[in-house]
Computed example of a mutant assay.
Amino acid sequence: IEEAVLMCDRILVFSSNPGRVAAEFKVDLPHPRNRLDPAFRQLVDQLYGRMTQRPTKAPALEGIQGTGVGMVLRHVSSNVLSGLIETLAAPPYDGHADLPVLANSLQLEADEILHLGESLQLLRFAQLSEGDLVLTEFGKRFANLETDARKKLFTEHLIAYVPVIGLIKRVLDERPSHTAPAARFRNELEDHMSEEDADDTLKTIVSWGRYAELFAYDEQSETFSLENPG
């Protein structure tokens, strides 16, 4: 976002599903531009706000698009998510951070901080709204728990809010062998997304599932199981 404001005289923001121009910003700042200029920072804030704007009249944590089995999951480490929750919960943020300020302090690009925020929102640990990232009560609770209790809460939210993980857990519970090939779920994912997105989604599923000790995954045989999930 900062690079766009630094270089461009016109910035378009696109929506997804369907892709269309959602907003246009004219950049009238003179060249060369200064990232520390208050007008520059204000425009960056406006862009973050537009990119995280919720549909009008949408309930606070409902209606998140693409949250079925066919939802694409960007590969984000559970350790990184835990660290971000801790950072948000601590001063100076105290549960509420301006996205560009947070991205700058963590030395993250705009797309990186948005992916992290979207993952926390999906899991109901935080909410993206008008360019801010705000911890929910669950997020605040997570920040104050010990490791085992964090895993338990993370597990509950995975099963409740990430349908494909709930599906894998049900399949493993129901099969006498308590095993299932990854191909069984990859094929289903590819009905909704590209092969590349399916691979990224599976990587995230494996990472989050292992952290939560929901299931194990054997890389060589590409098989999920309930054997020694930790």
Rank of each mutant, 00 (worst) to 15 (best):
F14A: 07
V27H: 08
S82E: 13
V101C: 09
R35A: 15
P32H: 03
N104G: 07
P55Q: 15
S16C: 08
L102I: 11
S78P: 08
K26L: 10
V101D: 13
V72Y: 08
Q46E: 13
L36N: 10
A60T: 06
N79M: 04
E86Y: 09
G95T: 03
L102A: 14
P100N: 07
P92W: 01
H96Y: 14
G49I: 05
D9Y: 00
P55L: 14
L102V: 13
M51V: 04
P32R: 02
S82A: 14
V44A: 01
L29P: 07
R33G: 05
L47M: 11
V69Q: 02
V76C: 12
H115R: 12
T87Q: 09
C8G: 14
L114H: 13
P32V: 00
T67E: 14
G83S: 05
E86D: 12
L81N: 00
M71K: 05
L36F: 06
A39Q: 14
A97V: 11
I11M: 10
Y93R: 10
R33L: 03
I113L: 05
R74T: 02
R10L: 13
R35E: 13
S105T: 13
E112V: 12
L108W: 08
P55K: 15
T56C: 03
V69D: 05
V72R: 08
V44C: 03
A97Y: 11
R74W: 03
R35F: 11
L88Y: 01
C8L: 08
L61V: 07
P30R: 11
G66M: 07
D94F: 07
P38H: 06
R50F: 09
R50P: 05
T56Q: 11
P18M: 08
C8K: 08
A89R: 00
R50Y: 09
V21Q: 04
R54H: 10
A23P: 06
Q107D: 12
L47E: 05
G19Y: 02
A58V: 11
I113K: 06
Q107T: 14
S16L: 12
E62C: 03
A97P: 06
R20M: 09
M7Y: 11
